[in-house]
Design a protein around this nucleic acid. Structure first.
Lengths: 128, 128
DNA sequence: CAGAATCCCTTTAGATACTG
DNA sequence: CAGTATCTAAAGGGATTCTG
């Protein structure tokens, strides 16, 4: 009881400004590729092509767009070397690195509950 | 160093199956309304209209759709009473309640970093 | 009260072709 | 190598109207 009331108080963090702050972050991390890119860059800086190879299924266009947004938000740094052929290195910034523990929390919850969710989903679809 | 290597190993949780498991969860919690509904239901079971009033800005259509998806995934229970006028109560299931700590982690990170992100974003837009 | 149905506009993202 | 440009199919989501 004590705990439940305390938890309810804290969910005000989420409902706070109508969810604006939380959603601003969700809009960034919840697209199809952001977390995969961030997790891939956790091993160190990588070039455009290396990212393209390691993240299977991503199109050139979406890799470019997602990296641009991550750079804009200060989560990823982009370093271009004036060589021919061109070389560009992408790496996590401190803010980007701070996202990793959160990403691991999400992954942990996903792994813990994905079976329950899929079972429930199948049962629901069955009953309709 | 030691820590960084350990962290890198753990990000395999995210990249694991090409991000399939993590994305299945992100697809559920990352739409515009899910976390707000879950956070609102943390105070206890609520009726359709009560949710509609407490979550400002949501349309009837999106409230219905999001609640259906949450029910399908076993995060929210729906109890209809055979009365006139009808009464329907929505509440978090145990799985739904287990989502609250994760939501709070996300909110915490959002609050901690939203200023940095918006500053970086403004600087990036300025330089273009 | 608690929705279902329909309309319609905006955004997203894949495929493809081209370039400094 | 590291992108940019363009086209298009599909999904998301708001407003409105109707109903058991």
């Amino acid at each position: 009881m004590q705990q439940d009331q305390s938890r309810y108080r804290h969910t005000c963090m989420i409902r706070g400004d109508g969810g604006k702050t939380v959603r601003a972050v969700l809009d960034r991390i919840c697209d199809k590729w952001t977390l995969l890119i961030v997790a891939t860059l956790d091993q160190g800086s990588l070039r455009f092509t290396e990212l393209h190879q390691q993240i299977t299924g991503i199109s050139q266009r979406m890799l470019t767009l997602t990296l641009r947004n991550l750079e804009r938000d200060g989560l990823v740094s982009r370093t271009a070397y004036a060589e021919i052929p061109p070389r560009v290195e992408y790496a996590l910034t401190p803010t980007g690195k701070s996202l990793i523990p959160l990403a691991l929390s999400i992954a942990g919850w996903a792994i813990d509950h994905i079976d329950d969710i899929q079972t429930s989903r199948a049962a629901y679809d069955q009953s309709k």
